[in-house]
Simulated scan of single mutants.
Amino acid sequence: MLSNSSLAPPLKKGGKVAEHYAGRFAPSPTGPLHFGSLITAVASYCDAKAHQGQWIVRIEDTDIPRIYPNSEEHILKCLDAFEFESDVEIIYQRQRLDLYESVLEQLKQNNLVYACECTRKMLGSNHIYAGTCREKHLDFQNQAIRIKVSAQNICFNDRLQGQHCSNLQHDLGDFVLKRRDGIINYQLAVVVDDYLQGMTHVVRGADLLDNTERQIWLGQCLGYPKLEYMHLPLAMNDQGQKLSKQNLAHAIDTQHAPELLLQAITALGQPPVDLDQPHQMLAQAVAQWDIQKIPKGTELNAIFV
């Protein structure tokens, strides 16, 4: 595993997904894990193990001001209670900031990014960035850093959701990789770490579906290999909202790990497993894993609390 002081990989030509399988579960410690997180953990684990691949845990905590007290401890407690085990040492993104900075330097040297002085107040409600600062050639110090996008369709074939496309210039505009306050954006950190950790497959919630074209574009700019994606339907509450920390979804109760694990496996449309120790239940779920049985669409019909 690369150490925090390791240099970022050089730019190179993109390649095909590797023959082996490496997947990950990458929660953000902005609150305790909830049932929707468990569904993602189960699906990513089962898909990796059903392909005789690696399952890797990563804590995505670059947004340091939003880290919720004790949430990292809760994540690790949940992993232990459900008897998930990462195949490599768990990494924490906030300990790898120098790696992301070195990748930004590569992008600067290749004239793929620029400094932006626009504030949220200046941008107003317009969610499509018009490239206001692209030709200003501002100094990077104390400014946001945006990556240049082009007016081309970026498409990928999601293993569950099917074909998905976006023209980033028309739909979004140049997007931020580093904020004015110095915080590394999620889009940059996730792309760099997926590459450095040798990821081949990404299994995550459908709420991140629209992030994918941005990450594909950034990966192309850096010459990283292509990934395979599968975006899972989201667990919903009785208000019709996705289960999330922002919507105050209940924290996972680790004292009921077997029962909750069975519920997650069932929510994914998989054949039932025997109520047992979590590692036995997971092994049975892996042996029966079939993505064709996962409910279609971006939302699960059942209500979860």
Rank of each mutant, 00 (worst) to 15 (best):
residue 119 T to I: 07
residue 33 L to M: 12
residue 195 Y to C: 05
residue 60 E to P: 01
residue 167 N to R: 14
residue 26 A to S: 13
residue 110 N to T: 14
residue 252 I to G: 07
residue 113 V to S: 09
residue 264 A to I: 02
residue 38 L to E: 05
residue 35 F to H: 06
residue 124 G to F: 04
residue 277 Q to H: 08
residue 245 K to H: 03
residue 213 E to Q: 15
residue 287 A to V: 00
residue 74 H to K: 10
residue 126 N to L: 01
residue 240 G to A: 13
residue 232 L to M: 02
residue 180 R to Q: 15
residue 107 L to W: 14
residue 225 P to H: 05
residue 182 G to T: 01
residue 46 C to S: 10
residue 221 C to F: 05
residue 190 V to M: 03
residue 260 L to T: 00
residue 278 P to T: 02
residue 69 P to M: 02
residue 242 K to F: 06
residue 140 F to S: 05
residue 204 R to V: 02
residue 67 I to H: 03
residue 274 D to Q: 12
residue 191 V to D: 11
residue 216 I to E: 07
residue 289 W to I: 07
residue 55 W to G: 00
residue 149 V to E: 06
residue 58 R to V: 04
residue 30 T to R: 13
residue 55 W to Q: 08
residue 22 A to V: 14
residue 100 Y to S: 08
residue 107 L to G: 09
residue 303 I to Y: 09
residue 53 G to D: 05
residue 116 C to F: 02
residue 76 L to P: 08
residue 239 Q to C: 10
residue 115 A to F: 00
residue 166 S to D: 14
residue 200 T to Q: 02
residue 179 R to S: 08
residue 101 E to S: 04
residue 55 W to P: 03
residue 238 D to R: 10
residue 42 V to K: 04
residue 291 I to T: 12
residue 203 V to I: 15
residue 51 H to N: 15
residue 214 R to A: 12
residue 89 E to V: 07
residue 100 Y to F: 12
residue 298 T to G: 03
residue 81 A to I: 08
residue 67 I to T: 10
residue 27 P to H: 08
residue 154 I to Y: 13
residue 96 R to C: 07
residue 249 A to C: 01
residue 259 E to A: 09
residue 17 V to H: 06
residue 120 R to T: 10
residue 173 G to D: 07
residue 153 N to Y: 14
residue 124 G to A: 13
residue 253 D to Y: 00
residue 78 C to F: 02
residue 137 H to T: 01
residue 93 Q to K: 09
residue 253 D to L: 03
residue 140 F to M: 07
residue 3 S to H: 14
residue 7 L to T: 13
residue 127 H to T: 15
residue 162 G to D: 08
residue 76 L to C: 08
residue 196 L to G: 02
residue 244 S to Q: 03
residue 25 F to K: 04
residue 28 S to Q: 06
residue 247 N to S: 13
residue 115 A to T: 01
